[in-house]
Amino acid sequence: MSDKKNTVFLILQDNDDARPIIESVEQDNPEATIQYQPGMVRMEAAGRLVVNRETVEENLGREWDVQELHLNLISLAGNVDEDDEKFELAWN
């Protein structure tokens, strides 16, 4: 198997609720790329991408339940690992 990391992605609706999450992804995944397409925002990274509750809460200015992510989620690629602190996508 090569060292090349396959792309994981997270696609959210392009709306106000998603903005603090997108900012958090940018902060916590500096190598991630963000593409805006009609109605949606696609965030992708090599191998792994994480949304941290703490970062979202700082950007949002209120408590945030990681499961709120479901409200604006469109699609994803990668194995999902979700708990109270983070939502993570990764290819092994």
Partner: peptide
């Protein structure tokens, strides 16, 4: 479509 797709991710 996107509302359905949020379920599809699950």
């Amino acid at each position: 479509g996107f509302s359905a797709q949020s379920d599809e991710s699950r």
